Amino acid sequence: MYRRTILGLAAALGLVAAATGPVVAAPASPSPLSFVSQLDLECFKTDPYTPPPTVIKTTHLNPVLVQAGLPPEVVKLGNREQLCVPVDKNYRTPTPDAFNWVRFVDLSCYRIEGQQVGFPLKLDHLNPVLRDMGVPGNIVKLDRPEQLCVPVIKNNVVPPAEVLRLVRFIDLKCYSAPPPKELGVGLVLRQLNPVLANQPPRFVKVRENRQLCVPVRKNDQPIPPDVLNVVQWIDLQRYDITAPTFPTPVSLTLRHINPALVNLPAEPVRIFASNQLALPVAKNGKVPPG
């Protein structure tokens, strides 16, 4: 482990930070299916924090919702409610082509309000662990937006440049998506991000589905075509979980990495109890390209 100045990130994002950790060479970008199907996020309740007044225009990216004609929407960031961090399930580590990318997806989630959609969707699980368990899909109605989850780094640990180029554009708009249905499976979760990788594995019980988080563009910002080809397929269904707490609360500093939000101040946060698990799904049979 060593410390070095992240001049490249400062030039690209206007963010000056000291990164701790080994330099990791980034492999070629994974396919959309490989990346999305192995992206599982455990969501922790956070202590209260209100960001500076921030208004964002959100535009849908997923082909199913784009073709449905869902319009852009302007939302205001409210209180931070959750921090979602990458995990693997049942000791099944993501494949080498996806691992170094998945482990750097950290999303800070803020309360938003918006218009009701009322759009029905058929969802099918993509993660190999759930598919091997025979977990069925479900039919939900995309209802009202409740959260906007945006990419951050923890404790100034910055991913390799090519990984950062992708993960900084992962913005998910989370809608209530009834009806809830008990999943009723048990899973062992292990933390993947380097900052939390020393935490022990934890057994969780997955309960009812609550939300569907879908990819959006913020403020009409340009997204490189190869990056867009991946992030437009990130659809995560969030389930309530029963989980043990961390042995001791973990204190972190969050910094925004999306170009639209890099000027927001760093945020202190403490986490110890998770309440949801976000699992990758396909909508209406549209599976990400392999």
Rank of each mutant, 00 (worst) to 15 (best):
L261Q: 05
K45E: 13
G184D: 03
L192W: 06
L196W: 01
Q276P: 00
D132F: 04
F169R: 09
V158N: 04
K57W: 03
V185M: 00
R92D: 08
V163F: 00
P51V: 09
Y239S: 04
D88I: 00
L148D: 04
R210C: 00
N90R: 02
F203D: 02
D226P: 07
Q276A: 13
P151S: 08
Q199W: 07
V75W: 01
G118N: 13
Y175P: 02
K57D: 11
N275D: 15
Y110E: 03
P94R: 09
V195A: 11
S108T: 12
N219H: 03
V195P: 00
P30E: 08
K181N: 10
L61E: 08
G114C: 06
P288W: 06
S176D: 13
V117Q: 14
P128H: 04
L236W: 01
A266Q: 12
V105G: 02
Q82Y: 13
V158F: 09
V158T: 13
W101P: 01
T46S: 06
N62S: 11
R255D: 07
I271M: 05
I170S: 03
M1R: 09
S251D: 15
Q211S: 10
N155T: 05
C149I: 07
P268L: 04
V66D: 08
P96A: 11
V150Y: 01
P63D: 02
P194H: 10
